[in-house]
Computed example of a mutant assay.
Amino acid sequence: MSKYLLDKFLYTVDRDPALVERYRSDPAGTVSWWEANLANRLLNCPADEGSTWQALTDEERRALREHDHVALFEMGAHPFLTLTLFIALFERDHGPLEYQRAYARAMAHLSLPYPDITT
């Protein structure tokens, strides 16, 4: 499992409005495309620099494809990255702060110590 790669997905998708919309409408296709095209590209480096060995696990792919923020947090994805992306994805479908409250309720069963979110 790679918390770094999960966080990198959340970070890169959240910062591109077109990718946010693509992830909203086609999560499975976006995850597959992102992993094939961006997962091994180094952040803030020229496009031709990268690695070849990083890959999401099946469990990570499933959680990303299903927009399962609870599972992502339990795997160690950073909660701020998850929350900001999921607000961009779903807040428009809810009233003021309604999505954020639902997000918190879904995580209410978790207690300290929380999963380690360091990468």
Rank of each mutant, 00 (worst) to 15 (best):
63 A>P: 08
65 R>H: 06
97 L>R: 13
49 E>N: 05
89 L>P: 01
51 S>F: 14
117 I>K: 07
113 P>T: 12
64 L>D: 01
6 L>I: 07
65 R>N: 14
112 L>P: 02
40 N>P: 01
97 L>K: 12
108 A>K: 11
36 A>L: 06
50 G>D: 03
61 R>V: 01
116 D>S: 10
85 L>M: 08
8 K>N: 05
19 L>V: 00
117 I>A: 11
1 M>E: 11
78 H>M: 02
95 G>I: 07
29 G>Q: 06
108 A>T: 03
31 V>T: 02
43 L>Q: 03
37 N>T: 09
34 W>M: 06
23 Y>D: 00
36 A>R: 15
55 A>N: 13
40 N>F: 01
40 N>H: 04
71 A>H: 10
34 W>E: 02
51 S>N: 11
45 C>Y: 12
110 L>C: 07
104 A>E: 14
61 R>T: 08
94 H>W: 06
109 H>E: 02
81 L>W: 12
56 L>R: 04
49 E>G: 02
94 H>D: 14
24 R>E: 00
56 L>K: 08
29 G>A: 08
15 R>Q: 07
91 E>P: 00
113 P>S: 01
118 T>D: 13
38 L>D: 05
25 S>P: 03
84 T>E: 12
69 H>R: 04
25 S>R: 13
119 T>G: 09
3 K>V: 14
63 A>C: 13
56 L>T: 01
60 E>Q: 15
99 Y>K: 04
53 W>D: 15
55 A>L: 05
86 F>P: 02
14 D>I: 00
17 P>S: 12
113 P>F: 14
44 N>R: 10
9 F>V: 02
54 Q>C: 04
82 T>N: 10
33 W>N: 10
53 W>H: 10
113 P>M: 11
85 L>F: 04
62 R>E: 03
92 R>D: 15
50 G>Y: 04
65 R>K: 13
48 D>H: 14
28 A>W: 04
80 F>D: 08
41 R>S: 03
63 A>S: 13
75 M>S: 00
92 R>I: 03
15 R>V: 01
31 V>C: 06
46 P>I: 01
72 L>N: 04
104 A>T: 07
90 F>M: 07
77 A>C: 00
45 C>P: 00
44 N>K: 08
68 D>M: 09
78 H>D: 15
9 F>A: 06
117 I>S: 11
53 W>V: 09
96 P>E: 15
56 L>Q: 11
55 A>D: 10
2 S>H: 12
18 A>H: 05
24 R>H: 06
86 F>R: 00
90 F>A: 07
58 D>W: 10
21 E>A: 09
3 K>C: 11
37 N>Q: 12
53 W>C: 10
75 M>R: 02
60 E>L: 01
2 S>V: 05
115 P>T: 06
74 E>L: 14
44 N>Y: 05
20 V>S: 08
75 M>I: 01
46 P>R: 12
16 D>A: 12
107 M>E: 10
42 L>H: 05
71 A>V: 05
100 Q>E: 15
73 F>K: 04
105 R>E: 15
57 T>D: 11
89 L>C: 06
45 C>Q: 12
45 C>K: 12
8 K>G: 04
92 R>F: 07
